[in-house]
Write a protein that binds this DNA or RNA. Structure first.
Lengths: 100, 100
DNA sequence: ACGTCATTTGGCTAAAATGCAAAATGATAT
DNA sequence: ATATCATTTTGCATTTTAGCCAAATGACGT
């Protein structure tokens, strides 16, 4: 099967949404943290010097993009990567940075 | 060597800038087009129903992120991918989309 | 039912991104 | 020197995003 570089209009939209969601330092670091496994919001909060409500908003951006899911257990809410394969993208990116 | 998921602050910034640059449908399609090889601005323009000045802005966003370079030849300016390895990221992303 | 803890949501303001139109630039041809 | 073509830059209006604070929600303990 021939490999084409172009994508359907719908797919372009979804892909760019994912990129956009990752296009913020805080959100990028959240995802990197989740690479270690499921994390409680309270733990993630400690990583940054931002308001809890701001963090919550970032988490919802990631969630809307389909990058993470959340699950409530008791009083806490835990976030995790929907598909750890997203980390492969990060490695590719490392390489892009390295090659320049 | 142990593989860590976290990155230096500087690297986080640069990475998120690259993601951000790709986080727009038009820019994403430009990059996909450049996957075919160097392209004249005029050719890229035909792909979209946008003002030339708008396209030029998108191109400069990609350029500032280091994703593309430009070269003038005569009256025309040609853009190409700085590092075609960025396309690997796209394939990873396809997989992320596929896995859901 | 009431209070508390963890998190999200609404309301607001400031900053950044998008996009068009018009002016500026750079290369070439006359 | 002037005109023309291709592209970028500037100026401006509109929309989107980021962030804080305060109010709302949901789960739990008393």
């Amino acid at each position: 099967m021939k490999r084409t570089a172009t994508s359907s209009k719908l797919s372009v939209k979804r892909k760019s949404e994912i990129f956009k969601a990752l296009g913020h330092p805080t959100r990028l670091q959240i995802v990197e943290k989740l690479a270690e496994g499921e994390q409680c919001v309270c733990v993630v909060l400690e990583m940054f010097d931002i308001d809890m409500s701001t963090l919550s908003r970032h988490l919802s951006v990631l969630k809307n993009a389909g990058i993470v899911t959340d699950e409530r257990r008791g009083k806490n809410i835990f976030y995790s990567l929907t598909c750890p394969c997203i980390l492969d993208m990060f490695q590719c990116l490392e390489k892009v940075l390295g090659d320049r």
